[in-house]
Each structure stands twice: as C-alpha cells, then as structure tokens.
C-alpha cells in the first residue's frame, strides 16, 4: 500500500467518524424519544416503511460504518497480531463489503 493510500484511508476514517458522531446522536435521540410509553416492532415499521428520510440517514450510517470499522481493524490486526500486507487488506475489503451489504439489507428490510 502506498503512503498516499494509507494517508487517504486515515483521512477517510476521521471523516467517517465525524459522520458517525452525527448519526449516533440522531439514532440515540430518536430511540429515547420514540420508546417513551413502550414500543413495538409494528410501531417502528409504521414509521420507517416508505420513509425516504430514515432510509437515507441509515444508509449513510451503514456506509460510514463500512468505511470506519475496517480501517480501524487494519491497525488492530497490525499492532496486536502482527498481520500486515496484501492478504490482510483483501480480508478487510471483504469485511467492508459484508458490513455494507448486511447493513443496507437491514435498511431495506425496514424501508420496503
């Protein structure tokens, strides 16, 4: 991996962290607001189904996670397990795709 790629990944991790900070705040505030007086699966689906704004927010949330987590894991694998190089990077790309795929599927599940 070139120095430039490594640095751009570092920037991407910081930028995705900033996005995550906003998403987590909105997510937590919504939970606290919505859960008052109890909450059922049907109630949640009634709010999210067909709601483009929620689908957009959670899609951004999922994509930010898919960018942020694998880059952090890259350092953890290197420092704790000494795993560096191409095989690790490929494994992390697969991890990112799985995170994005599963997350977006979940978003679709509550939207459609």
């Amino acid at each position: 991996m070139t120095r430039r790629t490594e640095t751009l990944l570092w920037v991407a991790q910081r930028a995705s962290a900033a996005v995550l900070a906003v998403c987590v705040l909105v997510h937590l505030a919504t939970i606290i607001y919505a859960v008052q007086g109890g909450l059922t699966g049907a109630e949640i689906l009634a709010r999210t189904r067909g709601n483009i704004a929620w689908a957009a927010l959670y899609s951004v949330f999922v994509l930010a996670v898919a960018v942020h987590a694998p880059i952090g894991l890259k350092a953890v694998l290197a420092e704790w397990f000494g795993w560096r190089g191409r095989a690790r990077d490929l494994a992390l790309i697969v991890f990112a795709v799985v995170l994005a795929g599963m997350g977006l599927q979940a978003v679709r599940g509550v939207f459609a």
């Binding site: 991996m1 120095r3 430039r4 490594e6 640095t7 570092w10 350092a75 290197a78 560096r84």
Partner: peptide, 12 residues
C-alpha cells in the same frame, strides 16, 4: 512528509 506518512509514521 513522505517519510513520516504511513504505517510506521505519524498516522500510527
């Protein structure tokens, strides 16, 4: 800056 970037440099 090239020397201090990357896995062994400041970003770690």
């Amino acid at each position: 800056l090239r020397a201090v970037a990357g896995d062994a440099g400041c970003l770690s």
